[in-house]
């Protein structure tokens, strides 16, 4: 347990660079993705521009994800994503209780940030689901749409391209939902802006 006002260096440069790149690319991909999906002559971003930007940003995201993936295979940062299965559900419920009740009673967070445990159980679950399920899905399905030749023609009688499209949209949608919640939850820090500062200077301020 850390003392109050302790500054922990939790986010090394590569994580911060990757995180910022990722955030920016996700925003671009959401905006252009929506423009493509709901394309009509009055869409803010023109269809042709939206498609090109989406394809380029998607490719960069895939490369950036590969770096993140390799980084988490071999550096210490990968340890934060390891879920201790035993009692995990209870720990998640405790964190959920904190966010829904405890926080309004000014209780202390049940799983304070330490050098060995950067994420609380809910963060851990959502980040693993995001980075190791949704993002790979969105990248692979995106690749299948970018090069339709590689997409399987039919899956159980349905068009492979339609299934790929649906996976891409569903994963993209869930990532968008994640981003909204993620950005809001970042305001739950020592001050509403302290977590945003952490992602710039690398230091986490405990509250």
């Amino acid at each position: 347990m850390n003392s109050h006002n302790e500054r922990l260096y939790l986010y090394p440069v590569w994580i911060r660079v990757w995180h910022m790149t990722n955030a920016l690319l996700c925003l671009i991909l959401i905006i252009t993705g929506l423009s493509i999906q709901f394309s009509n002559p009055s869409t803010v971003v023109k269809f042709k521009v939206a498609v090109s930007v989406h394809n380029i940003a998607g490719t960069i995201l895939a490369i950036s994800y590969a770096l993140f993936f390799i980084g988490n295979l071999f550096t210490r940062n990968g340890v934060f994503y390891v879920i201790e299965v035993k009692g995990f559900l209870n720990r998640m419920m405790a964190q959920f209780r904190y966010y829904t009740i405890g926080i309004f009673r000014n209780e202390s967070p049940p799983f304070p940030v330490t050098v060995n445990s950067k994420f609380n159980p809910l963060q851990q679950f959502s980040y693993v689901a995001l980075m190791y399920a949704l993002v790979p899905l969105v990248i692979l399905s995106g690749l299948g749409l970018l090069y339709p030749e590689i997409t399987v023609n039919s899956i159980m009688g349905a068009s492979g391209l339609d299934i790929t499209d649906l996976i891409h949209l569903a994963a993209g949608f869930l990532i968008t939902i994640f981003m909204c919640i993620h950005i809001y939850f970042c305001t739950i820090g020592k001050t509403p802006t302290s977590n945003f500062k952490s992602m710039i200077d690398g230091y986490h301020e405990s509250h």
Partner: peptide, 21 residues
């Protein structure tokens, strides 16, 4: 948390990707 007894999710995904391929 005992890190050594658990597997990093990235390895699991890597194996799944291999199967998928």
């Amino acid at each position: 948390m005992n890190y050594k007894t658990n597997i990093r999710p990235a390895w699991v995904v890597l194996l799944m990707l291999l199967g998928f391929a």
